[in-house]
Each structure stands twice: as structure tokens, then as C-alpha cells.
Design a protein around this nucleic acid. Structure first.
Lengths: 267, 267
DNA sequence: AATCGTGTTTGTCTTTCTCAAACATTACGC
DNA sequence: GCGTAATGTTTGAGAAAGACAAACACGATT
């Protein structure tokens, strides 16, 4: 009856959770004013004020003429994360090369907490949907409707896939999105067989992608690479063999780089 | 006598400061274990543990086989910061173009809290010192010894420059670094006159750069762009006119983009 | 088998958050 | 130009949460 007790679980720092919510609120809103931020949180004005002052002092938030933004410290820290991801160092050049060869968008992604994050992107000369891709990188994306995501899911154990589906659901981003668990498992089977994944307007209408998984030194999938293009430019042979071939080659080369590159623990 | 009182100033959330310190500690150390993190903080093990668990849950920290890293949420948030910096959207293509034309490293930077942060970097085909530039982007850099930094300082008022010098000092990164206030002011005068700044091995031995300021719609400097190359490739006419010309052109075009592009507040 | 190192959990005291309300400051209407 | 509203900032004091230390678990190492 009395549910207002300590409610024991593992302990957390509530203030850190609150700060995290505030950052999320600022990220969500375009250019929030102080009261905009207050509206999104349920905490008193005074409290929010103290948090914002602290976050600003620490560089996580910046105030530009009366409005709040995320601070540049997030840029430098994000850079550190990328640089310390072996996949980034192993794959960057290859991704650039692939973008050059195809003239389209190329993405290098990793999985984190049931979604995927783009660790590096290269824009070929003809790449389209710049704005979409810009925004897309601001948040982790679903795995079930992208070529990279499906390529990676295809090489996880079924249990892990099931957990992800349970957590994230199979949100229909377009009419083509696979939103049925059984159909998704069939699709993953096919992906394993042929070695690459196809996203046929499942994420965004009018856009197709081809993605291939990248296995790390331990043999587990540690990321994926993909080429994305408008359907009109990604059809026929190019869709069925040329681009898949190039993507798988790139994935393969990145795997080799991963195995042969030493990532110095030196300062 | 009793100095251990509240010591009033503006209020801050201590837990957020602590969390920030923990993130800084993880960023500093290569791949810290739990006790590595404890060593860098003065807080009890139990406390640090609760913080790390919270930060991990929020995605700011990730635990990879027993060692801590900064989490991928920092990547997505950093991406948001870049995308919401008008200079990035206005300058990205131009920076790529300049890297193509020169085949060297090109940087687009902004000032924040007395230092500069690289908001975008493009690597030309011959660009050298990749590792240095990778690491450099992980932390804000001094303004007094880079071409971009000096280009921007040249267009701040003297008071602002003096404040920055007081805060940051004129650290000697190489033998060529300008570490004397008067000499720096003379240099800034020259920079204003000719419209671009030169970094002649002042940041890193063997490397020169040419940087030009970028003025925003309000007329104030909002960033800078630079080309960086080994001294052997950046001398003679190329150093004295060709590259400066290209850099100033790029800066100019970015300024025009800034004025003409509308940054939609739409979702 | 015992000790040491590393990481996790818990009881308790203390600090610090948080709220609400009062206080500034700027914008707005008339 | 004055009053009113809206927005942001500071403060006092109760309530909640953080911090420490010590105990606990688990492996590795001798």
C-alpha cells in the first residue's frame, strides 16, 4: 500500500538523471528559452535555473542571447568517442573511397543499446537527402529498417534479436518497413545467406541502401557499412550486384584493417 | 575565522560537477578501469560506482569488458551541436572544396570560452599529421598559436583579447610561439591589415597554416577557416599569396552563405 | 587454501537539493 | 510614461538524496 518507500534497486544519482533530461530537452527543442526548458521538466524554476547554470559552467550547455543550446564540450567529447572506436580508424578511409566510387552517401555504424549510431558518414558527389542525413545522425536509429541495422541483426543470435525487438518494437517508418517479427527473421536468414542486407524504401520513401556487416577480431559483428541512394539510381544490376559487391568488399577491407592495425594505447 | 560556511556564491548542483569530472577523467585516461577512475577523483569507491552506473544508464559512459569509455550519446549530441551551428552548414561545402583545391588539411573553427573548437575538418589528399589532428579535435585549443585563432583574435576588441590572454596565458607550444603580449598585439595588428593570419610553426614544428576570419550577419567574427601544410609545401609564393588568396576567398564565400542561407526553425 | 586486488552493495549521517515565494528585470499594453 | 505582465534570478528552510566507511562478493595470484 505504502509505495513511497526507498523502493530499493541499484542506486543512481538523481541529479545526474535530471541533468541528462535537461540536455535531452534542449536537444529536442530548437532553441529553447529558459521557460521552454522548464515546461519540459517537472521541476521548479529555481531548480532548473541552478542546473542550467551548472551545465553552462561545465560547457555542456551554452547560452546564446537568452536562448539555450547544447555546448561545444559535447563536440570535443564526441570526437574522443569516435577516435577511440577502432572501427572508425579502421574504416574511415575505406568509407571515403566507397563514397567516391559510388558518388552516394556511405555510412559506418555501430550498435548501442538496441539502436544504431552513425560513427562516420561520407557524402559522395551525387548524394541526396542531405538534411535528412544530418538530422538522422542526431539520434540513434532503429535497426530493423536500415541496411546497416539489418546486416548487423542478421549476425546476432536470435535471442539478442528478440530482446531488441521487444525493447524497440518494429516501428513502421514507411509502407515497406518490416513490422512483423516472423518476416523480419526470414529476412535476416536471407541476409546471412547472401552476405549483405537491402533496405528497399523501408526507412525513407524513395531511398534504397545496401549494407554489409563488419566482424571484429573476435569474430563478432562490431559494425556495418552501407551505401544509400535514391531508388532511381539504385536498381537493376547496380542494385542487385554492383553496389552489393562494392559494399562487401569495403566491409572486408575494413575487417582486415581492424585485424592488422594496432591501436596504440600510447598517449 | 570560520571559513567553512556556505561560502555563498551562485548555487550549483554539486553532483553535476562531480559527473562532469568523472567524464573528464575518462576522457583523459585511455581506457580506465573502475579504480583508475577512482584514483582521479577524490570520492569514495561507493560514490564513484553510483555515478558511473548512472552515467552508463544515461548513455554518457559505456563499459566495454570491464573498462570505461565515453558513451555514444556524446556523439549524437555533438552532432546536434554542429548541425545547429550556422557556420557549419554555411561552411562545410566550401571547406571541402578548399581541401580539394589545396590537397591539405582545412579547418573550420569557432571560439568558446577563450579557446577554439574545430567544428569541421576536411582532409585533402596530401594532408599530413593525421593523428595530431585527430587528437587535437578532442579538446579546445589555444587561440594565440593557430592561424584560425589569431585570425579571430585580430578582430576582437583589445579588452577581450587581454581577458583571454589573462585566462589562458601564452603557452609556448614551439620555439616560434608568440609568448609575449606586446608581440602578440603587434601581430594582430598586421593580421588586421592584410586580412589573414599566418601560423609559422607556432603550434607544431614543421607545420604552417594560413587562416582567415569569418564575420557573421551582425558583423562580428563568428569563426575562421584555415589551411595547414608542412612547411616544405607551404613556402614562397604559395605561402605568401596563393594560399592566403584561396583561404580569404573561402572565408568570403562562407560569409555570403551565412547571410543568404535561412536556417529553418522547422523541425 | 589464503591473500590480495578489484568491484559492488548497504547502513547511516550529513550535505545538498528542491520547492515556494519573494525579488529583479525586461517587455508590453494602453 | 506608467502599470501590468512575463520572464528570469535569488533565497530560506524542509525534505530528500548523496557520501563515506565498512562489509561483502568475486577472481586472480601466490
Amino acid at each position: 500500500m505504502d509505495d513511497s518507500r526507498p523502493a530499493d534497486g541499484p542506486r543512481r544519482i538523481k541529479s545526474v538523471q535530471t541533468a541528462s533530461e535537461i540536455l535531452a530537452a534542449i536537444q529536442r527543442r530548437p532553441d529553447p528559452t529558459f521557460s521552454d526548458v522548464c515546461d519540459e521538466l517537472d521541476a521548479s524554476k529555481g531548480t532548473v535555473h541552478t542546473y542550467l547554470a551548472t551545465l553552462e559552467e561545465e560547457g555542456f550547455v551554452a547560452k546564446v542571447d537568452g536562448r539555450y543550446r547544447l555546448g561545444l564540450r559535447l563536440v570535443t567529447m564526441g570526437e574522443t568517442v569516435r577516435n577511440e572506436t577502432p572501427l572508425y580508424r579502421a574504416g574511415q578511409l575505406e568509407v571515403d573511397k566507397l563514397a567516391d566510387e559510388t558518388s552516394e552517401y556511405v555510412h559506418l555504424t555501430v550498435v548501442s543499446r538496441g539502436k544504431e549510431v552513425t560513427i562516420y558518414e561520407s557524402r559522395g558527389d551525387n548524394a541526396v537527402a542531405t538534411d535528412y542525413h544530418l538530422r538522422m545522425r542526431e539520434a540513434p536509429q532503429y535497426l530493423h529498417c536500415t541496411a546497416t541495422g539489418k546486416a548487423m541483426l542478421g549476425h546476432f543470435d536470435d535471442d539478442r534479436v528478440r530482446d531488441i525487438i521487444d525493447d524497440q518494437g518494429l516501428v513502421e517508418q514507411t509502407d515497406n518497413t518490416i513490422s512483423d517479427t516472423d518476416r523480419l527473421f526470414d529476412e535476416l536468414e536471407r541476409i546471412r545467406e547472401r552476405g549483405y542486407a537491402v533496405n528497399d524504401e523501408e526507412e525513407l520513401r524513395g531511398m534504397r541502401s545496401i549494407g554489409a556487416p563488419i566482424r571484429g577480431v573476435d569474430g563478432d559483428v562490431c559494425g556495418a557499412v552501407s551505401v544509400t541512394a535514391p531508388t532511381s539510381r539504385l536498381s537493376g544490376d547496380r542494385f542487385r550486384s554492383e553496389i552489393p559487391e562494392l559494399v562487401m568488399q569495403a566491409a572486408n577491407i575494413i575487417e582486415v584493417n581492424l585485424e592488422t592495425t594496432t591501436f596504440d594505447p600510447s598517449r
